[in-house]
Design a protein around this nucleic acid. Structure first.
Lengths: 259, 259
DNA sequence: ACCTATAACTTTTATATAAGACTTTGGACA
DNA sequence: TGTCCAAAGTCTTATATAAAAGTTATAGGT
């Protein structure tokens, strides 16, 4: 009703960070600034995984922008699977529940194309010295150590995956307290080490089974193996996990959607 | 100022197809209906690849919805890489230029992570009878034939890929006229057979090189090979191409982004 | 011919408003 | 105690308006 006469339906009256900076480069639209602000709060731990964010209305008041701008920022975060939105319920910080782990971070499927949940049948954790490459990639202090996890994982009752994971000891202090490690390890990162894996990059190669592969997977030494190297990144972009999976692909395959 | 009292800023006053149908299921929001209408026109060939679509304003008038709704429909099409939008220029039907083929449909990269453009060094086309599986997947008529293409492709001067492609003869009549086939085969589908590949699914396995692989790729017969099976789908969702690539992964790898 | 300023066009961003649709909650009622 | 219904909260969809930013064409001056 009131329709106060301030009349300003215009744009960008409240540019948050950079004002009207618009020379050539260095201009970020308001909704992206809002997105970054929200992301910063998520990184800082102000809202923990599973928590409900304030409503769009509340956020718009807090941040001094319109509800539509908040919505666009939230939609962007939702597209990156950083938050999850439910109509009528609210917006929530994404959690590493089984479903997310299965669909976003586990690409092995059976011959019908259905994703299969892997079951950990053997798990070992030890502390080790990093290689120079690992130290560089993980951005470790000069003398810092790493955790090395070896897991054997079964699909439909047969051991199919031989997996090695490398983590910074600094980022995961006292990890050995949590032995035996749970099947969903990203949930552990999230709950106990304030580390949310937001995205990952994988490189796939076909290699020959090593003697150790043959032993673990119960195959011949020259059996072709799918080797998957993964780098997992946290919300702030930091590399937090190095992983190498060696996988039998006789009854299963790696599924990739191109779109 | 005016704040006219017609008041109707409300929603869904002009529902296109289903009206206010909203029982439990079977409700599609207006912007998705608009998206489908636009997609139908693209499928029908009303706008050819590379062509500019009418402006948002024109479309909103034509279709009897607001500009914002057209915008949301176009954004959805843009997210699926069906159209490409350029600020200040217009909205265009996506083309299978080299860049799109390279980034959307070719996942092989070198050890630095850079995508590499493959070069076709051998190409053969012949007509054949489909297997029952091929006939079923491609939805062929009972007596219909298929084209079979064999290509050998090189990366940085070395033959790395041994590729077999199967196409419906009905969908690609007179394909043999275009021999030798161009390097970018999706551009050929698009230009001469009104077939736009919109998305694809791939299944990856590690296998042993066959005698033929060994001959083509110049490797030993038991060398591990990355086998990539692909199904490519057109705009309307029809399966239009079956492809099996066998790939050496000593200097290159398949890159997959999980997000 | 070349450069510049201007205008006209586009998409993009931002705001305001309103109603639909979904979920949860709490109270009335049997 | 259990069920139903209404209310309140949420996200979702839709429209209208306006300004900003990028592109292209045109007119004008040097």
């Amino acid at each position: 009703m009131t329709n106060s006469n301030d009349g300003n339906g215009g744009a960008a009256t409240a540019s948050i960070a950079t004002g009207r900076a618009n020379m050539q480069l260095g201009y970020t639209p308001l909704y992206l600034q809002v997105r970054q602000q929200l992301l910063d709060k998520l990184i800082s731990g102000e809202w923990l995984p599973g928590a409900m964010l304030p409503s769009e209305q509340q956020l718009s008041v807090q941040m001094g922008v319109s509800q539509g701008t908040v919505r666009k920022a939230l939609d962007a975060l939702s597209a990156d699977r950083i938050v999850v939105r439910h109509q009528g319920r609210g917006t929530f910080v994404a959690e590493h529940d089984q479903r997310r782990t299965l669909f976003q971070f586990f690409k092995i499927a059976d011959d019908k194309g259905d994703r299969v949940l892997p079951e950990t049948v053997y798990s070992q954790l030890r502390r080790a010295e990093p290689s120079t490459a690992e130290s560089r990639l993980l951005g470790l202090r000069p003398k810092a150590g790493v955790w090395r996890i070896v897991r054997h994982r079964a699909l439909k009752g047969r051991v199919m995956l031989n997996e090695q994971i490398t983590l910074s000891e600094d980022r995961f202090p006292g990890l050995d307290v949590h032995v035996p490690l749970p099947n969903n390890i990203y949930e552990l990162y999230e709950r106990h080490f304030a580390t949310t894996v937001a995205r990952a990059a994988e490189q796939l190669r076909a290699v020959s089974a090593s003697a150790q592969d043959a032993d673990v997977l119960g195959c011949g030494e020259t059996t072709p193996i799918l080797q998957i190297d993964r780098q997992a990144f946290a919300l702030n972009g930091a590399l937090v996990e190095l992983r190498r999976s060696r996988c039998l692909t006789e009854q299963f395959h790696y599924a990739s959607d191109l779109r």
